[in-house]
Design a protein around this nucleic acid. Structure first.
Lengths: 299, 299
DNA sequence: CTTAATCATAGCTAAAGCCTATCAATTAAT
DNA sequence: ATTAATTGATAGGCTTTAGCTATGATTAAG
């Protein structure tokens, strides 16, 4: 296998037409350069340099190969400079995955600060259900997930970001809308509107509801939180909504969002990465940024 | 300095996503590839590979650098294949220098065989006076000279090709034209037409003439052999012409070419190269070819 | 004839690449 | 659940090689 150093020696010879000066330019001794060049010639099986006391000159083959050598060295230089450019741990593309019940309500709160603290990161946002996100994370298509932590994620590495309370969404005229102090047990006997299968929010919310003695309203399954919200607004039932989705006074004239007393149902939002993920500095910065952004919004 | 082998390891990892298989593809052991790749990462200061038991994947930086690495390796491959193509010692360009008093008369005899025996050599023909040719040979602008050997060429390497006799060119009606047996001493008292200064033929011919007691005709100096020949044809004098220039019956109706008896004046035509010239096989082939071509023409 | 310049040679050292053997962690299977 | 197999990392040792200094040989120049 050819060696880059030898190509440097060859081009130096071409440049200086003098072994001593060429060696000096390569920061090696003259015998070293002489020897390596001879080895190169031997390896290639052809003479590259005509050696005369007063006048070193390249053979035609040498001239030809110097051109090729310069190409190789230039490519190698580009490799190194590209590597140097990639050295900045806070630069490059980063693919962030979020679930649909979180993305539209969380992103407005966090993107501004993320773009400020990591100005050289290009964020690509991917919205998908948990199962898909985990698959894509594992495959390397995604770098970072932000979603409710589940036990099945233990093979990954995760950082707790914040606990998002689940609020009770009821029509304004619903009996529970007036209850000052709300507890899960108040749900006993209620029928709860739910999201479609596959949304982890459904599983989580219904987990709390079942435990409290509520039932799923099987007559309907919403495919998005907004659909769910509109169903509540039109008086078709009640449901649990994550706190971030209740902010901004959306439909606040027709829907009442009730807060449960402790222990309130929550979903623990975490940042999830592959173990050994290469850009830990970046991850730490994201964790810090998101926690900071959320600190004023969710206790 | 980056090493090409490391780039091969990197691209192999990218291809196989598996250390063992990548190592096998590179014909090294798995620990070797692992270690070298780690060293490369350390050297660049950035992680290129995410290592998982089931699933090796490249980091974004790794993906970027694999592209660069392939560029480098491709350039290196081109270097090697170019070197291989240059291996043929009987191929490539060859710059041949000849003097004006030889080139037009010799080349027709030798080029056919040269092109046959060295079909992959491109001959470039350069016509100049000896001094210029030697200078250009020394500078590497020329590869091979064919000219009369002079003592000042001893710093070069030379191969005797043939001895070219000098003939006496006289007008048909000149007294010496009828002499059957011609010797140098017959020139005593004659005035000899000569070439311009700088042509080595002048020095050689006049050397013989002076020794024989002839004189230079200072009233005129020809700038080419053809001019000289025409001057003889028009009866302006006599001169010595190299044998090859007298062949083909040029102006044979007005000029008589007389052959000297032994020891006849000759010029020894040699092939001259730099010592250590790289294409000796080629040179030997040329020497053999020229000798062969001339064998039937000049004893 | 001597001096200076220049490339090659000799002998040595230190580093680097590579190997085998083994470990540790994970996955798959009995 | 325990065992077997897979896979990348680690340890230790061997061999090659790139590099050095010192010196030699040859040529050009004063």
């Amino acid at each position: 296998m050819i060696k880059l150093r030898d190509l440097e020696y060859l081009t130096a010879i071409e440049q200086h037409k003098h072994f001593g000066k060429a060696a000096q330019a390569c920061f090696v001794s003259q015998p070293t350069l002489s020897g390596q060049l001879m080895k190169l010639e031997q390896q290639l099986g052809l003479q590259l340099v005509e050696r005369h006391r007063r006048n070193v000159m390249l053979t035609p083959a040498g001239e030809e190969l110097v051109k090729e050598a310069r190409n190789v060295l230039q490519a190698a230089g580009q490799f190194e400079s590209r590597a140097k450019a990639l050295l900045d741990p806070f630069a490059g593309d980063l693919h962030l995955g979020l679930i649909p019940t979180l993305a539209p309500y969380l992103l407005p709160h966090i993107m501004a600060d993320l773009n400020t603290t990591l100005p050289n990161i290009n964020f690509f946002l991917h919205e998908n259900q948990t199962k898909v996100l985990l698959q894509q994370l594992d495959e390397g298509k995604l770098d970072v997930l932000i979603l409710p932590y589940l036990a099945e994620m233990e093979k990954f590495e995760s950082y707790q970001l914040f606990d998002e309370p689940l609020m009770l969404a009821t029509p304004k005229n619903h009996p529970l809308a007036n209850k000052k102090i709300l507890s899960l047990s108040d749900l006993q006997g209620e029928k709860i509107l739910t999201l479609a299968d596959g949304h982890c929010l459904k599983d989580q919310a219904m987990g709390y509801c079942f435990a409290a003695g509520a039932k799923e309203d099987n007559s309907f399954q919403a495919t998005s939180l907004e659909t769910l919200r509109h169903m509540v607004a039109s008086g078709m039932g009640i449901t649990l909504l994550p706190a971030l989705a209740t902010q901004g006074n959306v439909a606040s004239d027709t829907i009442h969002y009730g807060e449960f007393q402790a222990p309130a149902p929550v979903r623990g939002i975490s940042l999830v990465i592959r173990p050994n993920y290469s850009r830990m500095q970046c991850v730490r910065a994201i964790v810090a940024s998101v926690r900071k952004s959320l600190s004023g919004i969710i206790s």
